[in-house]
């Protein structure tokens, strides 16, 4: 009844000129707030752009500066070089009499440690996510999720020191590694930091699978396990893939753990039990010892730019993958 009265009253009110009180102009601070929000957003974008600009600016002398080019070039960094008459090889020895700046041992080291970390953490995180999202009773779920996510809050230096002092000996005894600090040890410690990341994203993706799918599958006489494996997990694949790629980006960029636990010898080989040096650990350890503007300094920025390119490309690739799956599923 009251709605009808109001509807009828509106034209009367407008005639009486009282409509103005309903169509008040938005107050001045609205405009100010909008401007502020926009400025904040632009600031975030500007920060990213400026990081790019800064790194490139410091790395560019590798192409143009004659003093730097006398010692090193992009070609020399990527291709094998024949030092002191020996056979052509990849070598990172920036402090030797003839500085050698080959990127390969570092790129390979970064990839080695990162892939080991992913191989360990992805299955654990995904299985844990499947269990938490679709199998565990609600009470267990309510405890499990925050606890795993709490793992992300452990400072990486703590993990690194644990790996250095305790886990290194265990792993060496277990697998008989040649070097006590090695790629596997660093990868194991790294995986602890990535598990919660992949877990959280995968768990969200699995939880977001419509309940209708589960009901439809169960109603066809499929078992719970069949439903999880054939309907729920496949529907969550884009989210799970995104989690793995983000984990890759986090792992390849992680510094503290690899500085402490990887052994830091710039060896280029496929042996997992050997000491390994990564891009991030190299930048962290050598930046403090270089002269501003020196060839070594510039090379470290080239390393940074390379790392940035890696994460940039993988993120782009991840978006492509997710997009591809979305299209395949026909959803929006």
């Amino acid at each position: 009844m009251s709605t009808v009265t109001q509807l009828e009253a509106t034209p009367v009110a407008r005639k009486a000129g009282r409509a103005a009180s309903f169509r008040r102009k938005s107050p001045a601070w609205h405009g100010l707030a909008e401007w502020g929000i926009r400025a904040t957003a632009l600031l975030a974008i500007a920060a990213i752009v400026l990081i790019f600009v800064f790194i490139l600016k410091e790395a560019l002398p590798i192409l143009f500066d004659t003093h730097v080019r006398g010692e090193v070039s992009l070609m020399k960094m990527w291709l094998p070089q024949a030092w002191d008459g020996g056979p052509a090889r990849f070598s990172w020895q920036p402090a030797s009499e003839v500085p050698k700046y080959s990127l390969m041992p570092l790129v390979a080291g970064s990839l080695k440690v990162t892939l080991i970390a992913l191989v360990i953490s992805a299955p654990i995180a995904i299985l844990a996510a499947v269990y938490t999202a679709s199998i565990a009773p609600r009470r267990v779920r309510e405890v499990l999720k925050p606890v795993v996510e709490l793992l992300a809050g452990v400072p990486s230096v703590v993990l690194g020191v644990f790996a250095l002092i305790v886990a290194g000996t265990w792993l060496q005894k277990l697998f008989g590694f040649e070097h006590r600090l090695n790629a596997v040890l660093a990868g194991c410690a790294l995986s602890v930091t990535i598990v919660p990341l992949i877990f959280t994203i995968a768990e969200d993706a699995i939880t977001a699978v419509p309940r209708d799918y589960v009901d439809a599958s169960l109603a066809l006489g499929a078992t719970k396990m069949h439903t999880i494996l054939r309907v729920v997990v496949p529907a969550a694949v884009p989210g799970i893939a995104a989690g793995i790629v983000l984990g890759f980006g986090r792992a390849i960029g992680e510094t503290m753990i690899v500085v402490i636990a990887s052994g830091n010898a710039a060896l280029l080989d496929a042996t997992l039990g050997h000491s390994t040096r990564t891009i991030t650990a190299t930048i962290a350890q050598e930046m403090g010892e270089t002269v501003h503007g020196s060839p070594h300094y510039v090379v470290l920025f080239v390393l940074g730019a390379t790392l940035l390119a890696f994460t940039f490309v993988t993120n782009l690739g991840a978006q492509r993958i997710v997009e591809h799956f979305r299209k395949k599923r026909g959803g929006t």
Binding site: P210, A216, L220
Partner: peptide, 30 residues
């Protein structure tokens, strides 16, 4: 086994994000 003998169709049509063939074959494969 009961749900195999007593099937169900829901209010909202729920096609799985699979091919048409795989959708129909789903119960059989299960």
């Amino acid at each position: 086994g009961l749900r195999r003998r007593v099937g169900m169709v829901f209010q909202r049509p729920v096609a799985f994000p699979k091919s048409i063939f795989d959708n129909v074959a789903y119960g059989l494969r299960a």
